[in-house]
């Protein structure tokens, strides 16, 4: 039971005696300062089993890819050609690849890149998409312009766009941030810039419908400013498509990155990512099935955990569901 339940008046159906604060115990609770909204969100979130497990799994994956390399010290790029194509063993828990590199270390190194790219690109796409979507849906004057912009971006062919971005920005970014960080920024930007459009369209559609609802009218009638209106009333109500876009967005970003590596536009070849590991292993599907298993599993688990996390967050943030 949360304290909130006791506070909710039972619409006059319950006997007055129970609704009124009686003994010492309930009084103590009653005098406690009302818990904050975020506290309630957290309470709801931790009671959501899927969200909790999803969150824990996601945390484990993140810790594994970021802290794992400190414990498992084999270098992901070290080649031990005599030990190539080995199956799982104690020295190489996930086996080795065709050049004798340790797959476990490569999975961690690849995960670091993939998870970072996935999350950053997703956040970028989500931020851009939600912003454009809300602006277009809410302000009628911006709608035409922003939606034509969305059409334009939807129509642009991804590959030539990337080639142009590589051509224009690779060298300056390399000089400013070093080759690895530079290419990271470039790829995150490329994926983010080319994948915000569906989110924008979806959010706009929802906003168009929501802003005609009565509660918006009510809010407006009491003089709510546009900024407050968007943050307090519109955004919370379009959260669920945004959350779905977020979960799907991470998967899309990880997979797009692998397609880019495959086309020679991604990270340098000695720079493993999950998508690339999966792609490289596909040719060896019959000989060494375990090689496709690891990256495939890692991508799926990440996406699943983010999905449950998103489900839980959505439920926790929805005041109508919260507390039931």
């Amino acid at each position: 039971m949360t304290d909130k339940d006791r506070l909710v008046p039972d619409e006059g159906l319950a006997p007055a005696s129970t609704a009124l604060p009686g003994g010492a115990g309930p009084l103590e609770e009653f005098t406690k300062p009302p818990s904050s909204q975020w506290r309630e969100v957290w309470d709801q979130f931790k009671n959501h089993k899927g969200a909790l497990y999803g969150g824990i799994l996601f945390l484990v994956i993140v810790l594994w890819v970021y802290l794992g390399p400190f414990l498992w010290t084999i270098d992901a790029t070290h080649i031990d050609i005599r030990a190539r194509n080995q199956g799982p063993s104690l020295t190489h828990p996930f086996g080795t690849d065709q050049l004798g590199r340790d797959t476990f270390a490569r999975m961690m190194a690849g995960g670091k890149t993939s998870v970072s790219v996935g999350i950053t690109a997703m956040l970028l796409a989500l931020g851009l998409g939600s912003f454009v979507g809300v602006m277009a849906g809410y302000f009628r004057r911006l709608d035409g312009l922003l939606m034509r912009l969305t059409d334009l971006f939807l129509a642009l062919p991804l590959l030539p766009l990337l080639l142009v971005m590589m051509l224009l920005f690779r060298d300056p970014l390399n000089a400013a941030f070093g080759p690895e960080r530079g290419i990271f920024i470039l790829i995150v930007a490329a994926i983010g810039v080319t994948s915000w459009m569906p989110t924008a369209r979806i959010v706009r559609g929802d906003v168009l419908a929501i802003k005609e609802r009565e509660f918006i009218l009510a809010a407006r009638s009491i003089g709510t400013t546009n900024a407050k209106m968007i943050l307090r009333h519109i955004l919370p109500n379009v959260l669920s498509p945004i959350m779905v876009s977020a979960t799907l967005g991470i998967a899309t970003a990880i997979i797009t990155e692998s397609a880019l590596s495959f086309l020679g536009l991604g990270f340098p070849p000695d720079f493993p990512t999950w998508g690339r590991l999966l792609f490289d292993a596909t040719d060896y599907l019959q000989q060494y099935p375990e090689r496709v298993l690891w990256p495939g599993l890692a991508i799926s688990l990440t996406v699943l955990s983010v999905n449950y996390l998103g489900d839980g967050l959505r439920d926790a943030l929805d005041p109508r569901i919260r507390g039931r």
Binding site: T247, L248, A251, I254, I255, S258, A259, F262, G275, L278, F279, T282, L285, Q286, V292, G296, I299, S300, T302, V303, L304, N307, Y308, D311
Partner: peptide
């Protein structure tokens, strides 16, 4: 449904396609 659709979405076709072919 959630499980299957999320797995389905996170497996790229360059892999699932080759898998069903094999």
């Amino acid at each position: 449904g959630t499980f299957v659709s999320m797995i389905g979405f996170s497996v790229p076709p360059f892999f699932s396609g080759v898998l069903v072919i094999v």
